[in-house]
């Protein structure tokens, strides 16, 4: 059965003057996805999010949220959407609780106990009565997520949700997202410039570069290759390469100063060491290289551009 489309972007084009910042962008987020929106700084991630939320106008294309075009039916389209755009902003002189309450009042039928619920979800219940200006960045990130969840949305859009957090804070936010996705069936659209974040958090990814989509797909499929890569360290590089180069299961060999990098067909890597030992080639060590999203990104973009 086809899943419900929570967000569809069709041919989105946005320019500031003559500078095109989004160029014919297309993507689809399905219900239940944790969708990673990956790109270097300045690639257009935040502009896309602003366009999706109706904060900026765009020249061409359509944005369909929950089945409604945001330009034609903004209120219905945004009704079940929660969002944190860039660093979450608050009315700093008021408490965290007050900030949530005034936003909850924009929706029908959000009970007061929901405020306590979302505060508990993000672990902010003990500091909720204090003024936001006393909060750390991590606490503001959490409160921002709480605010995005206040009206029990079906789709939550988060713009760099782990920005400025320490490793422990990043881990907690990621776990929170996964937990909410599983337990409350919330669909997430998460922009990030962190490849590792997409790998551990997202089931789908769209890679953006200079406002253009480079790739979109299921993360696992993108990383699934029909070959394996090994780095082999040996003092006898030439001899080792001579042993292997004629083997038709070897795809490529590239030497470096202390050894060589070899690409072989899937399932053949373990036989490589055996061949070398049988031919009396001394092997110092062998490092299998798993394809990471970083490798994939660099492969796709021919250079990562500030991707961490």
């Amino acid at each position: 059965m086809e899943k419900k489309h929570m967000l569809q972007i069709e041919g989105l084009t946005k320019a500031y003057g003559n500078k095109i910042v989004l160029d014919n962008l297309n993507l689809t987020v399905e219900q239940g996805d944790i969708y990673g929106f990956l790109g270097p700084n300045g690639s257009g991630k935040t502009t896309t999010i602003r366009a999706v939320l109706g904060l900026v106008n765009y020249q061409k294309g359509n944005v369909i949220l929950n089945g409604f075009d945001i330009k034609k039916d903004f209120k219905k389209s945004i009704q079940k959407v929660g969002a944190v755009v860039e660093t979450p902003r608050f009315f700093e002189n008021y408490s965290g609780y007050w900030n949530l309450k005034v936003m909850a009042d924009f929706y029908d039928h959000v009970p007061r106990k929901r405020i306590d619920e979302v505060l508990e979800i993000v672990g902010m219940e003990k500091r909720a009565k204090e003024k936001v200006k006393t909060y750390s960045l991590g606490m503001k990130q959490r409160l921002g997520i709480a605010r995005a969840l206040i009206h029990s949305p079906e789709l939550v859009i988060l713009d760099e949700p782990t920005n400025g957090l320490d490793p422990q804070g990043m881990k907690e936010v990621r776990e929170m997202i996964i937990q909410l996705s599983i337990e409350q069936n919330i669909t997430f659209f998460v922009s990030t410039h962190l490849l590792s974040e997409v790998e551990v958090l997202c089931n789908k990814v769209c890679i953006l570069k200079r406002g253009q989509k480079i790739e979109e797909g299921v993360v696992k499929k993108l990383l699934n290759k029909d070959y394996e890569v090994l780095d082999i360290y040996t003092p006898s590089v030439k001899k080792a390469m001579d042993c292997l180069i004629r083997d038709n299961r070897v795809i490529s060999i590239n030497p470096f100063s202390e050894g060589f990098k070899i690409e072989v067909q899937q399932g053949y890597a373990d036989k490589i060491v055996k061949i070398l030992v049988e031919d009396n080639v001394p092997v110092r060590y062998v490092i299998p290289r798993n394809q990471s999203l970083e490798d994939y990104f660099i492969e796709q973009t021919k250079g990562g551009e500030h991707i961490a």
Binding site: F74, K75, T87, R89
Partner: peptide, 14 residues
């Protein structure tokens, strides 16, 4: 300037 205008504009009001 404070970034709080967008908080209202992403609610179901035009």
């Amino acid at each position: 300037r404070d970034g709080t205008l967008k908080l209202v504009l992403i609610r179901p009001i035009n």
